[in-house]
């Protein structure tokens, strides 16, 4: 799949790249500010004389880490809540669904801004806040799938032959909905990278001197007329990576869940950013 290959390249660059670049991403060489690309600095230097390539790779680590980890938080919470809710039913289901609705009603971007502005833009906080505000969609999908799967013949059959509730939940229901989870989670990574980039662009996300693609665009945009590549490079990096995750999500859906009508069960997740 081309998308997987694309992301593979991005991941490889971001993981190994920093070791191959002779500059630390935060190292300033103020004598060499805003230099165009040269052999020593293949992507030039920024306003503090920092190597743009080094920052791009380090920033990629940050952006990917935030995207992946916040997705992990969202999926964990979403799966837990969705599965519990769908399986338990009754009062527990009602309570969990109220909670889900509450979080859904919460204006995500506003909440993130509020929290980040109050407590500062540390990485763990960003991951938590983005993760904890983006789980309800997944939880709802899960719950729906659990409800649907529960009624299917093989689950009833399993129950009939005396399998325990938990066993059924894990063995059959979750396994059966794993495709939906994977597809949703993949697209979520891209969405969360966009949210992080948007926050960092506004100065509310990853704080300098730590690089992220979002704050690199913000820094670069100040000199866009003279040193346009400082904006273009991180912007393309965001686009390519998010595109990669979106395409991968689509590809996975076709692969794992080919039936047409299922396509719509993963609702839109365009980010606010």
């Amino acid at each position: 799949m081309p998308a997987a290959a694309l992301l593979g390249v991005v991941a490889l660059l971001v993981l190994i790249g920093p070791f191959a670049v002779p500059y630390a991403p935060e190292a300033q060489s103020i004598a060499e500010r805003l230099r165009p690309p040269t052999p020593a600095h293949p992507l030039g230097t920024d306003g503090f004389g920092r190597d743009v390539l080094a920052r791009l790779l380090a920033g990629g680590r940050v952006s990917l880490a935030v995207g992946l980890l916040s997705m992990a938080v969202a999926v964990s919470v979403g799966v837990l809540v969705g599965a519990l809710s769908g399986y338990a039913g009754g009062a527990a289901d009602a309570a969990l669904m109220r909670l889900t609705e509450l979080v859904m009603v919460f204006p995500t971007f506003f909440l993130i801004i509020l929290v980040v502005a109050s407590f500062g833009g540390s990485l763990p906080l960003l991951v938590l806040v983005i993760g904890l505000t983006s789980w309800p969609v997944g939880a709802r999908i899960l719950r729906g799938e659990v409800l649907r799967t529960r009624e299917r013949d093989f689950v009833t059959a399993a129950r009939a032959i005396g399998a325990t509730e938990a066993r059924i939940l894990v063995r059959h229901v979750l396994v059966n909905v794993v495709a939906v989870v994977i597809v949703s989670a993949t697209i979520r990574v891209g969405t969360n990278i966009l949210i992080e980039a948007g926050l960092s662009y506004l100065g509310l996300g990853v704080q300098p001197p730590l690089a992220s693609w979002g704050n690199m665009v913000a820094d670069g945009a100040r000199v866009i007329r003279t040193d346009w590549w400082l904006t273009l490079i991180p912007a393309v990096a965001i686009f390519v990576t998010v595109l990669g995750f979106n395409l991968l999500g689509e590809g996975l859906r076709d692969l794992l869940d080919p039936r047409e009508e299922r396509a719509r069960r993963v609702p839109p997740q365009a980010s606010a950013a």
């Binding site: 980039a197 662009y201 665009v217 866009i224 912007a235 689509e250 950013a273």
Partner: peptide, 18 residues
């Protein structure tokens, strides 16, 4: 269209605005 759709939702708003 399907390529355009995926591309469009992958562009950060601030990049498009700038």
């Amino acid at each position: 269209l399907s390529i355009a759709v995926v591309s469009a939702i992958s562009i950060p708003t601030f990049v498009l605005s700038l």
